[in-house]
Design a protein around this nucleic acid. Structure first.
Length: 843
DNA sequence: TTAGTTCGGGTTTTT
DNA sequence: CCCGAACTAA
């Protein structure tokens, strides 16, 4: 993504509603104390900082903490900072002025944060004046609970603690009218955003193969995260050049239209929650001042994962009191792909020259072997703050490395290993975690665990709230709160079927865009002008009447009562109940579960805690911003399955990192640039440092992808760990010996490849052609492996559907070889060999 | 207009 | 392989 830099000019165009460029310039030059962001600052922090900054910034500090005796604190009611080590304590006690805490993995970061906040409150700071930004809502919840324990129950619920998105969504709701939004605006999730982009691309008659919604969406998201308005975007030759280069010169028009449609729909996407907060704080000094006074103490956790937009919000809010404490670890920055900017850590020093720096380097979590192995791999990164993470814990086991023949074998190995470990050490299920790079890898693990009856739980994945039936019901809720919500309207206007079909909707789309109004206004105010037959109009009226009746109750009715009413009166519940298939049953149950969730929220959600009566809009904000890690009920004793991203901040005695293969982890998409490869390496570092006692690394030499078996080779990350800490399987150093000879005995083990050849595709040499005795699976495997398929012109082949045929020609480079094949049954076909399942019949 | 079916495209990671 | 989108038959 080329949108990482922001220049002054771009920031000047920050507001989409900005009236006048000149006056904005003036505003930005105002005193920093007023929360303005000095222009030169902006340049400095974002234009190619010299790389040397990355290394020299911090001197090593001696391990003072080693000499501090460890005390166990039993007292509950009194806060006792003696239970912290010297560095932790210093960080917790330093309450006034800017400070940064660089916290190595497992160094008790959360502890410092909780003690710090508890300490503040004990000193007499009103919880209302503390803003604490966390990475997940769950982290916030847990931290509040811990603070409550430390303080013996002060009013911790009054602390503003939560994710950036949820905190600022709350603030935006309060201040919405200032930026011309209603307070019940909708929040579009990424699916909604993409769907809206898809419609716009279609309406503009652009080719959606070129303007792919996901690509366009990520481009727009990058722009927003860097506070680049459509206008600034258009005026930036560099960005426009990139779009032109990629064949999407009109992308900016989609961006502009997208924003317009969001506005018409009274909706904000995730990025808008931060963007609009910036607009609010920039254009309404009185609002800024209000929150500057309110939030006298600001803490930011996981600071390494903040993006420019978040950085600027924090900077503005903290400008008055400068009681800002940021906590992070550059080595654990893994969200670069969504705009997170490590530079925020590195620039802290420039923004607050008199800041205090604390480094937490003692790891309390893991064994020496794990810590050292993690250190050895992260040292391969160039971009990092030098620090020395160490532990006084026991040596522990070396990291076990396992090789499997396939992804399914890998699953079986992991499941069996867990089973064995439970047998030996009596560990509980929940002390195990299986971490993977992509969600799709969970499947083999699940199957294997199920086979031997080990209970497991998946974190994230296709989250509950992404399911169709749930999104449908939520769309009705959203519509009740905000009928202008276009995406929700489109989703449910004809579900359950009520005779409002494609033709009608097309007419609505056209009229809406002619008038420049929302769909809702089109089917209410402009209904008479809509050129559809009387029957359709009647149906539309019925629909709007229903939505209105839901909407009428939104503020008065209790969330649960209304939710249930909507589920019934919309016909959705009936529709789902009618479906007696197993899937239908589960959909019905899911909806019930959602309703239960609302019940729970009504009884003990944040609003209920504050003594207010929670309504459905409150629930919607809450639910829109839930993270995958926020799922509740984690007391149950189950093995955890999750992506590494989702594992951030968690810890487990036994950790399995699976799928350590080139092109999977590191992902092939990251191989292009060093910075991206380094992010993958940090991701691996995060994975490894989740482990307390034992870490097991596994890879498979073949794996299903797109339903086809592919060859794979071990990840470079295994190579990069100092072998001193590894317990390698005997055959790893020379893979594909005896046992695997049936795969062709290829010499392309990973040791034949120089360790750092990032951009190179890992393809087996041509000699990897299958031996004659090869079974079909292996044939298919090679076909998809990215290497030569062994299929040559003249060969007789068989295709699953087309039957026998003759290869006429092969063109293109592996892995995108295209074959022209003549099938007597269907004629000549062009087939991509990596997808087509071709069997060689004879040479 | 709807339901049922084929087709085609896609894989990081997530607020 | 699995999803959603487009196509097609009623």
């Amino acid at each position: 993504m080329g949108l990482v830099r922001v220049s002054t000019a771009e920031l000047n165009g920050t507001s989409p509603d900005a009236s006048d460029q000149g006056s904005l310039n003036e505003k930005i030059k105002l005193d920093l104390r007023q929360g303005k962001f000095p222009a030169e600052q902006n340049n400095e922090s974002n234009h190619d900082p010299p790389k040397s900054h990355l290394q020299l910034s911090f001197k090593n500090q001696p391990h003072a903490s080693r000499i501090i005796a460890f005390e166990i604190v039993i007292s509950r009611a009194m806060l006792d900072l003696n239970s912290l080590n010297a560095a932790q304590r210093a960080a917790a006690e330093h309450t006034e002025g800017p400070s940064m805490v660089i916290a190595g993995a497992g160094s008790g970061k959360t502890r410092v944060l909780t003690y710090r906040i508890a300490h503040l409150i004990e000193k007499g700071v009103d919880p209302f004046q503390i803003l604490s930004l966390t990475f997940t809502n769950k982290a916030a919840k847990e931290m509040k609970a811990r603070i409550a324990v430390l303080l013996g129950n002060a009013d911790v619920r009054n602390i503003w603690m939560g994710t950036f998105h949820s905190i600022f969504a709350r603030i935006l709701r309060i201040e919405a009218s200032k930026i011309n939004y209603p307070s019940n605006f909708s929040i579009y999730d990424s699916t909604d955003s993409k769907s809206l982009i898809r419609s716009i691309v279609k309406e503009m008659n652009f080719d959606d193969k070129i303007y792919k919604p996901s690509a366009v969406a990520s481009r727009i998201s990058s722009a927003k995260n860097n506070l680049i308005s459509p206008r600034a975007y258009r005026e930036n030759p560099e960005i426009m050049g990139e779009d032109a280069m990629s064949g999407k010169p009109k992308l900016v028009d989609v961006y502009a239209m997208y924003n317009q449609r969001l506005f018409q729909s009274s909706a904000m996407d995730f990025d808008d929650l931060l963007y609009k907060t910036n607009v609010l704080l920039r254009d309404f000094p009185e609002v800024l001042v209000k929150y500057q006074h309110k939030f006298r103490y600001i803490l930011v956790d996981e600071y390494q994962d903040t993006n420019f937009s978040q950085y600027l919000i924090v900077k503005k809010l903290a400008a008055l009191n400068e009681n800002l404490c940021v906590v992070g670890d550059d080595a654990q920055s893994i969200y670069g792909f969504r705009g997170a900017n490590i530079q925020n850590i590195l620039n802290f020093k420039k923004d607050y020259p008199d800041y205090s720096l604390f480094k937490l380097e003692q790891n309390y979590r893991s064994t020496k072997n794990i810590v050292e192995a993690a250190n050895s791999i992260i040292s391969k990164n160039k971009d990092q703050i030098k620090k020395n993470v160490w532990t006084a814990n026991e040596e522990g086991n070396k990291l076990k490395v396992n090789r499997s023949l396939s992804d399914n074998d890998e699953g079986l190995f992991v499941a069996n290993d867990i089973f064995k470990e439970i047998g030996i050490s009596g560990a509980s299920n929940k002390s195990f975690a299986i971490l993977y790079r992509t969600n799709s890898q969970s499947r083999a693990m699940e199957e294997a665990l199920r086979k031997i009856n080990i209970p497991y739980r998946i974190y994230g994945g296709t989250s509950f709230y992404q399911r169709k039936e749930i999104k449908d019901l939520l769309a009705y809720f959203r519509l009740a709160a905000n009928p202008k919500d276009e995406e929700s309207l489109k989703r449910v206007i004809n579900y359950p079927a009520r005779g409002i079909g494609k033709t009608t909707l097309e007419k609505v789309t056209i009229l809406a865009s002619e008038r420049g109004v929302s769909y809702w206004e089109t089917i209410t105010t402009y209904l008479p002008q809509l050129e559809v037959n009387a029957g359709a109009k009647l149906k539309l009226q019925d629909f709007t009447t229903m939505v209105r009746s839901h909407g009428a109750q939104i503020d008065s009715a209790e969330a649960f009562t209304l939710a249930e009413d909507i589920a019934k009166s919309s016909g959705l519940l009936r529709e789902l109940y009618a479906d007696k298939s197993p899937e239908g049953l589960s959909r019905f149950e899911n909806v019930q579960e959602l309703l239960n969730g609302i019940k729970e929220f009504t009884d003990k959600g944040p609003e209920a805690e504050e003594g207010k009566k929670p309504n459905l809009s409150d629930f919607l904000i809450d639910v829109a911003l839930l993270t995958d890690a926020d799922q509740t009920d984690d007391d149950d004793n189950k093995v955890g399955l999750m992506t590494i991203h989702a594992s951030k901040g968690l810890e487990f005695p036994f950790v399995y990192i699976v799928g350590l293969e080139e092109n999977l982890f590191p992902s092939q998409l990251s191989l292009g640039e060093r910075s991206e490869l380094e992010e993958e390496r940090r991701l691996f570092y995060v994975a490894l440092t989740r482990a307390e006692k034992k870490a097991t690394l596994t890879y498979a030499i073949s794996r299903y992808r797109y339903g086809q078996l592919n060859q794979s080779e071990p990840s470079r990350f295994i190579d990069e760990i100092d072998p001193e800490y590894l317990d390698l399987p005997s055959s790893v150093r020379q893979p594909y010996q005896e046992k695997e000879s049936s795969f062709g005995g290829t010499p392309w083990g990973r040791n034949s490849r120089p360790a750092y050849q990032a951009p190179q595709r890992n393809s087996p040499p041509e000699s990897a052609a299958p031996p004659a005795n090869m079974k079909r699976v292996s044939q298919v495997a090679l076909a998809g492996s990215g290497g030569s398929t062994g299929i040559l012109p003249g060969m007789q082949v068989a295709h699953e559907k087309f039957g026998k045929g003759k290869v006429l020609n092969i063109e293109g480079e592996a892995p995108n070889e295209k074959a022209t094949v003549f099938f007597p049954s269907v004629g000549q076909k062009q087939l991509l060999l990596k997808y087509a399942k071709l069997d060689v019949l004879e040479n």
